[in-house]
């Protein structure tokens, strides 16, 4: 049985003010940030979620770890319904499910030292019996993570560390509790390139060691390729294509995936990639449908694309793709 099962997950935000769109003014409009997302993950699998800003990938992450309540849908972690567990025993839920945020400087209370940040997490979850033992545990994991010598860091405040160092602490704190499910929301996008690689490798090592399942959210396609086993491409709250990383990234089928990847600049100045232009920017997901959400910007859209939302087709390589204009069997 899969470790993580997400079934038709939705998160809508109701607007208090009336919203004006090109279809007229809507009162009590709903922003459909996550609009029916389903996927399954095996134990130890890493799923990359890519898409532009506003596609709902961060909201998805927040719903998965219980920071937002889903409007509807189910999340089963090791067979347990996460909403029921959250209600019953919040602490044991957070021991199972953790998140790493984009900006480590916003993650921690600036008035807490690294010692407090890490030791308190142990204390809260009854790891170690006394202060000395907990400090020892914390020192050990810091040493393993390449923060040498760890004693130097313990009594510093978060703002006294560099972004890379603090992101290591953030990952350590999340992995301290041996979670079986980790969501990493753009964990390296604000770090310098030369430290990014080390942080990604550290994250990967920890996740593999503990055999945790991870959802890696990013807009950086190359990093996602490096880290994930499978990739899901999101557009306006829905997964438009999902499958094995290299199948999706090297042979994208959905027009949006194709455009997204063709717009990804290459490091090689001699490589000339044919860019598929998509006009405009993703709209706010208010009053979407009934047709394919991408149709208004899609270069291949036909009349029927505006009438109903395409069902998922399953391809030969196991991918799913929702588009009328592609034949997944080809």
């Amino acid at each position: 049985m899969p470790e993580i099962i997400v079934k038709d997950l939705m998160k809508y935000y109701r607007q208090k003010k009336a919203v004006t769109t090109d279809k007229g003014t809507i009162k009590n409009a709903e922003v459909k940030a996550v609009d029916g997302v389903s996927f399954e993950l095996e134990k130890g699998e890493i799923l990359g979620v890519i898409g532009e800003s506003g596609c709902g990938k961060s909201t998805l992450g927040r719903v998965l770890v219980g920071l937002e309540k889903p409007t509807s849908g189910e999340i089963l972690i090791s067979g347990t319904d996460s909403q029921a567990l959250l209600k019953k025993d919040r602490k044991s839920f957070h021991r199972m499910v953790q998140i790493v945020f984009q900006n480590p400087f916003d993650t921690f209370d600036p008035r807490h030292t690294i010692r407090k940040i890490l030791v308190d997490a142990c204390k809260m979850h009854n790891i170690g019996t006394n202060e000395a033992e907990r400090t020892e545990i914390v020192l050990n994991i810091m040493r393993e993570a390449g923060l040498q010598p760890p004693e130097d860091y313990l009594d510093r405040y978060s703002f006294e560390l560099s972004g890379g160092q603090l992101q290591r602490i953030s990952i350590l704190r999340s992995m301290l509790l041996d979670p079986s499910f980790l969501v990493a929301d753009e964990p390296v996008s604000m770090l310098d390139v030369s430290v990014r690689a080390d942080i990604i490798n550290m994250l990967l090592k920890l996740v593999r060691e503990k055999n945790a399942t991870m959802v890696f959210i990013s807009h950086d396609i190359a990093t996602t390729r490096y880290i994930s086993d499978r990739v899901a491409v999101m557009y306006l709250g829905r997964i438009v294509e999902m499958g094995k990383t290299d199948d999706i990234l090297h042979h994208p089928m959905h027009p949006y995936t194709r455009a997204l990847i063709s717009n990804n600049a290459s490091l090689d100045p001699n490589e000339k990639r044919e860019r598929i232009p998509i006009p405009g920017e993703p709209p706010t997901p208010i009053g979407t449908g009934p047709g394919c959400y991408f149709a208004p910007r899609c270069p291949f859209a036909k009349e029927h694309c505006f009438k109903s939302y395409p069902e998922y087709q399953t391809g030969k390589d196991g991918r799913i793709v929702s588009c009328f204009e592609v034949d997944a069997q080809k």
């Binding site: 390139v193 030369s194 430290v195 990014r196 690689a197 080390d198 990604i200 490798n201 396609i221 190359a222 990093t223 390729r225 490096y226 990234l249 090297h250 990804n264 290459s266 490091l267």
Partner: peptide
Amino acid sequence: SFPSFSGEKTELRG
């Protein structure tokens, strides 16, 4: 330090 988009997945080195 940049992961490559095409080709083999080599170990990323910072």
